[in-house]
Design a binder for these strands. Structure first.
Lengths: 153, 153
DNA sequence: TGTGAAATTTAATGGCG
DNA sequence: CGCCATTAAATTTCACA
């Protein structure tokens, strides 16, 4: 199922990506639409599942997590399933993607320091073979493409 | 600089990660704190830069972007800098991380289909050597560790 | 820092072009 | 689909503990 959005919907998404707490009234002012119409469109975006959720970007460095790494994992047999079932045991793993290619999984981990990393690797080794890359910096860009039709509820 | 949060702050962050549009009144109800105190804490989190921004998670599949891939890049000389300077020319690249290890950059790309991928690879090749992994699925988990001190403005 | 109350703004709903 | 008007709820501000 592919849903096409009109310009209003795209503008709303762009605004919400930058500040998801803006009032409907204020969003409406920016895009020249009434409160009620703006609210209805936001609710349509949520109801259609285009907006998965309203969230918050946290700066973990300020909380003492100064080390961000990508750990790629290789597994034998079905150890992959054991690992994903145990993911809750690894609070430092923030995302876990299953991918094609040399590695089975690529995880993003938020860590305090290198001894925290060492500890994590020790806990990963029973499941498979981890390969660690330290994330030096990140450029984050959010973009949505334009279509021209109105979103239906 | 490391900032420590108390239980109220942690609960607020957890709640906002799940629904960043909840009213201060409602958050306050959940954590048993008044509207005004809750609002002040959220504003402190923002002022301290712990909350980078309130955002929205978009389901791109519903917008016709059915293919998500990780593309790792190798570069010669300083082609790496040319590429990052030109990132705006690649609207399908959503994140771009500089990492240590075999590859210089790892990018996440949101694509419509395999011909879109082919087109992207053609545009990447002038900069460096891309290696593509298709993202089959993703498990996303947000967690914050507990400390016990009060956040200061 | 937290609470409670008053003034202002926003959200939610329903009727109408 | 969008606008306007009405009622309910939330935000903001401030005095006080």
């Amino acid at each position: 199922m592919k849903i096409t959005l009109d310009d209003f919907d795209h503008k709303i998404l762009q605004i919400l990506e930058q500040n998801a707490r803006l009032s409907y009234a204020e969003i409406g002012r920016i895009i020249s639409l009434s409160q009620s119409a703006t609210k209805e469109r936001v609710m349509n975006l949520v109801d259609n599942g285009i907006i998965r959720r309203f969230s918050v970007e946290v700066d973990y460095r300020k909380l003492g997590y100064d080390l961000k790494v990508l750990i790629s994992m290789k597994f034998k047999n079905d150890d992959f399933r054991k690992f994903t079932a145990d993911l809750e045991k690894f609070p430092e793993i923030v995302t876990c993607k299953r991918v094609t290619g040399e590695y089975c999984l690529i995880t993003e981990c938020i860590l305090q320091d290198s001894s925290h990393l060492e500890n994590l690797i020790d806990r990963l080794i029973p499941y498979g073979i981890p390969t660690t890359s330290i994330q030096l910096s990140e450029i984050s860009l959010q973009k949505i493409k334009s279509n021209t039709k109105r979103l239906k509820r």
